[in-house]
Design a protein around this nucleic acid. Structure first.
Lengths: 196, 196
DNA sequence: TACGCCTGTACGTGATAACGTACGCGCGTA
DNA sequence: TACGCGCGTACGTTATCACGTACAGGCGTA
């Protein structure tokens, strides 16, 4: 049992005890309600053993909960906030293009949101760039201000402020700003087929 | 193992196999990712055994999920039917809230982008609303202007202009604008994970 | 003060989870 | 056609879950 697993098992155990006591039940009371023995419940509450999913489901039921609800009480990750000042700045490898990633770099992240700024005449890349996204990725871009041209798989698509485009991100693509003003757009990249 | 428990164990097993195959992984591939043996994974997927919480947590992690998310994919209530007479009239179903969907309503769309506007004091829904997204859905919201409070699964999260939040969209949630000014935010909803 | 009851935990035992090894099958290629 | 590889599952063994029984401690009451 690794440290992380141990923490998880112990956390749910403490939670079960807290909920049982809040309901004014003894170990034997809860045992009767959920069909799990009292000594087993004691071991679970003290973090001494990891119950099977089947037993854990019955314990949760005895507490008038679904198992997913019980687990959620001690999980992190259901809500993740990135404050305005915490955004990750992307490296500026191309002159006139800067971007920042707005979403957290977490495994549970299934869509990455980023904002790009293009100076007049600048582009996010070039025609020869290889695809930067895994197979099956899709991208949606929303032009917030200015004018942007999407080059995707050899074709050019002109986009005005407010326009929204979705395309296969695993094809060679880049954006450019024909000017005359600065252009900004939001990019939403969804994980490839392997991930969804 | 009672009938109900057997159904639950078998259900999650089928779900694990569906997700693993959708990710293009073999049993040995997933075994490496999550630190559970391949024969054990095979037994779990075939419903032959009930894994402990500790092992189930590791299996979920190998699928880039928290265990509660994995469980929710097969919980009752996953099928949501909106009867014709119950259809929510867009765009303004709640006073002071209006929104527009920015992405095209196409089958291949894996992230739906929408912009919401909330007048001071208005909300996108209420505490009693059922979850409107399928199990496994995730949502990202970027506050463009004003101040928004996300209520998700009973907890309130305060968001200022420029803040970005990602959360489990299959949990009961709604946004509200405490005022004093108008608030706008972009919403990105990623498709759920169900494969059957 | 002593007894009975309730409570949580220790312990022994049987059942089963979990692993490592090996097998069978199918497919691709030389 | 034969061989090697990848894949999923069978099987034996070990570790641990899960239970039943019993113990220890505390509390209330006669």
């Amino acid at each position: 049992m690794s440290d992380v697993d141990a923490t998880s098992v112990a956390a749910i155990g403490g939670r079960v005890r807290a909920l049982r006591e809040a309901m004014g039940l003894s170990l034997r009371d809860l045992a009767e309600r959920c069909g799990v023995s009292a000594p087993m419940l004691s071991q679970v509450e003290r973090g001494e053993t990891s119950p099977t999913l089947q037993v854990a489901t019955r314990i949760a039921a005895g507490l008038d909960l679904r198992l997913s609800q019980l687990l959620r009480l001690d999980e992190d990750g259901a809500v993740t906030i990135v404050r305005a000042g915490e955004r990750r700045q992307g490296p500026t490898t191309v002159k006139g293009h800067s971007y920042e990633v707005l979403t957290a770099p977490l495994p549970g992240q299934r869509a990455e949101l980023s904002r790009h700024v293009l100076a007049p005449g600048a582009a996010t890349g070039g025609p020869g760039d290889p695809p930067m996204h895994e197979p099956g990725s899709r991208e949606t871009a929303l032009v917030e201000s200015g004018r942007v041209v999407l080059h995707c798989d050899g074709a050019a698509h002109d986009l005005q402020t407010g326009d929204c485009v979705t395309f296969d991100a695993d094809l060679p693509h880049h954006f450019e700003n024909p000017g005359p003003g600065e252009a900004t757009f939001l990019g939403v990249v969804s994980a490839g087929l392997r991930r969804s």
